[in-house]
Nucleic acid binder design. Sequence first.
DNA 1: ATGCGGACCTGTTAGC
DNA 2: TGCTAACAGGTCCGCA
Length: 271
Amino acid sequence: MPELPEVETTLRGITPHMQHQTIKQIIVRESRLRWPIPSDLNHHLCLQTIQTIQRRGKYLLIGFNHGTLILHLGMSGRLRIVPATTLVEKHDHVDLVMQNNLCCRFTDPRRFGCLLWTDDAPEQHKLLRNLGPEPLSKIFTANYLHQLSRHRKINIKQFIMNSQIVVGVGNIYANEALFAAKIHPSLSANKISLARYQLLIDAIKKILKAAIKCGGTTLRDFLASDGKPGYFTQSLSVYGRAGLDCLSCGNLLKTKMISQRATVYCSHCQH
DNA sequence: ATGCGGACCTGTTAGC
DNA sequence: TGCTAACAGGTCCGCA
């Protein structure tokens, strides 16, 4: 489900309901996520007040005075704000019940997500420590990518999907950005000129911004915290369009697996 | 240091 | 209609 725009949409959806709220109770129905949910979460959070709600890459960070809840939605995770009495359904693993009697409900069928606690500054946490820059920040530039790539033989698609290089670019938006920048997904990162990296940077920023504006992309099951789907789906040029005509030149879009991820591109437009 | 493949899960869909 | 295999938005980890 979630790439950066979906996580950002989730953040914006939950923030008005959760900011400055005090936690009444944590209900953990299933602790076996990617890593086990710490068993002492209630002890950490009970009667504590939420100070900040932020995003770093695809991680959501819920800050308290004495530490931070680190949350990742994985492949199929979702957060919703519902009345605390709302009927529990399958895969509703965790409720953060607040004193306003709303709860933030974490649902994740595949259980690739995680919910962790850290006492320290979250950016020092093992999972966040080595993350690359935010794609929408001013330090994510063509020069940055060009320099980092000089000795990297990996293909450009995996390069930009590597969270140590840049966070938040998942399979959908990697495909879309490479199409927009007219770069073939299999091209070695070290073979790409500074000028072409500028096109790629522009494409990544533009597409992520547009997707955030639309509330993310809904392929099959992404719903924002208020239950609304994302409308960027209608704007996808290549992802999910294998075998259909390229919107730019009319040739048929090709598909191949790169590192077990579906890759769609136009062999006529992308080199 | 870099790159590759496997691992973690369940649900949906395509194909026989 | 029913079974099976392939695939799905992520990313960490161990090994070469």
